[in-house]
Structure formats: C-alpha cells, structure tokens
C-alpha cells in the first residue's frame, strides 16, 4: 500500500452503518455546497477526473484519515486551483483580492441554465486505441507492486490488495483513457480495459466462503499473461 486511500482489505474500521432508503441525505448543511462547488469548478475543464482523484489521494495521510468525504473534495479543489494558477495562495488565505471591477466570467463558467444538460451529459472515457491482448477467460497476472509506471508516487487504479495476483478476465471493455498517464498531463494514452475476477482465497489467504470472488477494472499495462 503506497497511499492512504488504497484501503481495500484493511482491518479495524468497525461496523458499516446503514442509512434509510431513498435519495441519500446530505449529513451537513455545507455538504451540498461543497459538492456543487467542486462540480462547477470541474466544469471549467482545467483538470481531468484522474487529476482530481490524484489530488485527493495526495492529501497528507493524517488529513485524508480525518477529513470527511466532502472535506477531501474541498481540500483537493483548493490544491488544484492553486496548482493550475487559477487562485493564489494569498487569496486562499485572505479571501478574494479587492478589485475595481469584477473580472469577466470565465468562458467556460457553468451557467445555471446549463446545469441539467451538463449533469445529464454522457462524456465517455472510451477512446480509439490498441486491440485487446486478452480475451474473456484468459488468465492474467497483475503488476507487483501496485505503482504508477511513469511517475514515482503517481496515480494508479490497481489496488494494492490485487497486486501480484492471478485472475481471470471476465469482461473486455475496449480502450479507455489510462488514468496513470492522464492524471499527470501525459495524455490520454488509451489502453484496453478489462474486468478481472480474483478468487477471494487467493487475495486473502482464506475466503469467507469458498468460491467467493472480487473483481477489479484494470488496464492492459497492469497485466501480464499468466
């Protein structure tokens, strides 16, 4: 496990607390505002979803552990805004700079009238790319350790618990944007994406029940024939 977010299989987190059925409720009054602010800022197109995930994962482990979900979003949003030069550290500290006239709206500022259409838009992550090297039924071995092959400490979507494991391809999704590259401005680098099933006994040494499985969605460069 290289980063704090990669928690699949960890012990000690205690019970899961179910909630009433229906539309999930925001637990705090500021949660919906944090959600909306993050989505509206994301609509400016200054970063990809992969870069946003990497920003959340790059929080200091102590912050990641103590922050609620939307606090992680806010912290990552602030960090991204500064990293992209859209907001200065001084503005975060002191509030908006006082100006004579308000700046013109950003050309991609999300308007209220466009919200429904933007949220309902289907913007696929599939891309033209190489033909798949594996087919459903093939046995594959995952990279060990789980790591970004381009950038030390960079973003990857291979969970630590599934690293170095042999699994079976169950779905071939075709080429998708590779997060390991896209999160770091290295291009979309589309690669075939697969759903790979692992035997729970292989992952954990012992399964809760023989035959139980866990799947993960993994890109071709995470995989070798097994």
């Amino acid at each position: 496990m290289s980063r704090v977010h990669d928690m699949g299989g960890r012990w000690g987190d205690g019970a899961v607390r179910p909630e009433p059925d229906g539309i999930a409720r925001f637990a705090e009054d500021w949660h919906p505002r944090a959600l909306a602010l993050t989505l509206a800022a994301g609509a400016l197109g200054a970063w990809s979803i992969d870069a946003a995930r990497h920003a959340r994962e790059s929080l200091a482990p102590a912050d990641y552990a103590r922050f609620s979900y939307y606090e992680k979003w806010l912290a990552a949003l602030a960090d991204l805004l500064v990293a992209r030069g859209m907001v200065s550290a001084a503005e975060l500290r002191d509030g908006p700079a006082e100006t004579e006239t308000a700046p013109a709206p950003h050309p991609r500022r999300l308007a209220a009238a466009d919200v429904d259409r933007t949220l309902a838009r289907r913007a696929p992550y599939s891309r033209p790319g190489p033909a798949p090297a594996f087919a459903p039924g093939d046995r594959v071995r995952t990279r060990l350790p789980a790591r970004n092959a381009f950038i030390p400490g960079g973003h990857t979507r291979l969970p630590g618990y599934a690293a170095g494991q042999v699994g079976r391809v169950v779905i071939s999704h075709g080429p998708h944007i590779l997060p390991d590259a896209n999160a770091h401005g290295l291009g979309e680098a589309a690669e075939p994406l697969y759903t790979v099933a692992f035997d729970a006994a292989d992952l954990w040494g012992v399964a809760e029940r023989a035959g139980d499985e866990v799947t993960a969605d993994l890109w071709q460069s995470y995989l070798a024939p097994a």
Partner: peptide, 14 residues
C-alpha cells in the same frame, strides 16, 4: 469573485 463559478449554478446542482 474571480468569475469562475456562478452561485445560481451551484443552487441548480444542489
């Protein structure tokens, strides 16, 4: 203040 977000859009998202 920087023209990056329209508060009315936030309301619509919520």
């Amino acid at each position: 203040a920087k023209g990056l977000v329209d508060p009315a859009a936030l309301g619509a998202i919520i």
